Amino acid sequence: MMIDRSSIALFLVLSFLVGVLDASAGDSDPRYRTCVAQCEKTGCVGERCFPHCKFPSDGVASDGPWYMQEPLYLKWKQWDCESDCRYNCMIDREKEREALGDGPVKYHGKWPFKRVFGIQEPASVAFSAFNLAMHFHGWLSFFILLYYNLPLKQDKKAYYEFASLWHIYGLLAMNSWFWSAVFHSRDVDLTEKLDYSSAVALLGYSLLLTILRSFNVRDEAARVMVAAPLLAFTTTHILFLNFYSLDYGWNMKVCVVMGVAQLLIWAIWAGRTHHPSRWKLWVVDSLMPMLYGMPQLFHLPAYGGVSLGTMPSFEHLSSLRRLSSSL
């Protein structure tokens, strides 16, 4: 009966989240698109003009000599004509929406933001860096626990059969949060694809790890049977984003489904095994869907709220990981 109720709850939560997700509504707004198109022609948004709008997006003047190329500091910042037009049109459009009493919407897959000291989204960068630090701390603590505090086999390997899987998770998590910090400090095509690809790879693998650990899958053949479809789907989705279409809405739905699914699986596993940290995990489970759906958290970007929320959730999962080695 418990499994039936859990399955129903999982279905309802995932259906609700998929239904409410609506990415990139802002950049499909006709007024925003008109503003960007006009800015790219005139180089101005209202009274604000951008001198480097006379350069194309690759930073090289089409009919000028080398000394007419865009300055190096502008190339480094990657704030070319297109990005400046998008940013200022977004700011103006959000002011109009606020005056009308409308809430913020996403632009190109991201909530409205403000540049600070050359950093595009300082709150998201800070929270991503904190997540990176906490994941490194968790991975290092797990490594010390296995190889220095617990007995080892004669070949110096850990007795815990899921150790290698957790090590891979730690490396993928640190890689994902590193590129998240880079992307939110400087949003260009390369950093965007690296961030999205790293996040999808982490979510896909962590869902696989969640299934293997919660169902205690130890047989190698069974692990391969479980891993093959999940890894195939994750790889296909990454290739789709990079080489076919960076569909923000579809990617958000995929990521939320994988993320919420593993949180619920962990919650059910913790309840059935009467894990000491189950109450902490249940609290995190109840908060994370709200962080995904909230457009702003204390005037911070929603991604910053999600990043902030994942820091305590990782600590709780770390406690599950450390204690699960004895189960």
Results as ranks from 00 to 15, higher is better:
H275V: 11
V18K: 14
V18E: 09
M294Y: 06
P295Y: 00
A158K: 00
G271F: 05
V260Q: 09
H167R: 09
V217S: 13
K280H: 12
C39M: 07
S62Q: 11
D219S: 13
F117R: 10
F16R: 06
L10W: 07
L171Q: 02
R5T: 13
V260P: 03
V105E: 01
D29I: 00
W179M: 13
G204L: 11
V217T: 04
A199I: 13
E98P: 00
L194A: 07
L132N: 01
L281S: 06
D195P: 05
E82W: 14
E161W: 02
E315P: 00
R93I: 07
S124V: 10
G59N: 03
R223E: 13
R5C: 07
L264K: 14
I144S: 00
V182W: 10
H275I: 13
T191R: 09
L281A: 04
G19V: 00
V105A: 01
D63M: 14
F178R: 05
P229R: 02
L209R: 11
E82G: 07
S15Q: 11
R213V: 15
D155R: 06
G103L: 04
L323Q: 15
L241Q: 10
G271D: 13
Y159N: 02
H184N: 15
E98A: 08
V284I: 06
V224N: 03
H184W: 13
F55S: 14
G26N: 01
S176H: 12
G118W: 14
T210R: 09
F113T: 11
G170Q: 05
R97T: 03
V306T: 00
R93A: 03
A129C: 04
A181F: 00
R321E: 08
K156D: 09
A123K: 04
W269Y: 14
G26T: 02
F50G: 13
V200Y: 08
A9H: 04
F55P: 03
T235Q: 05
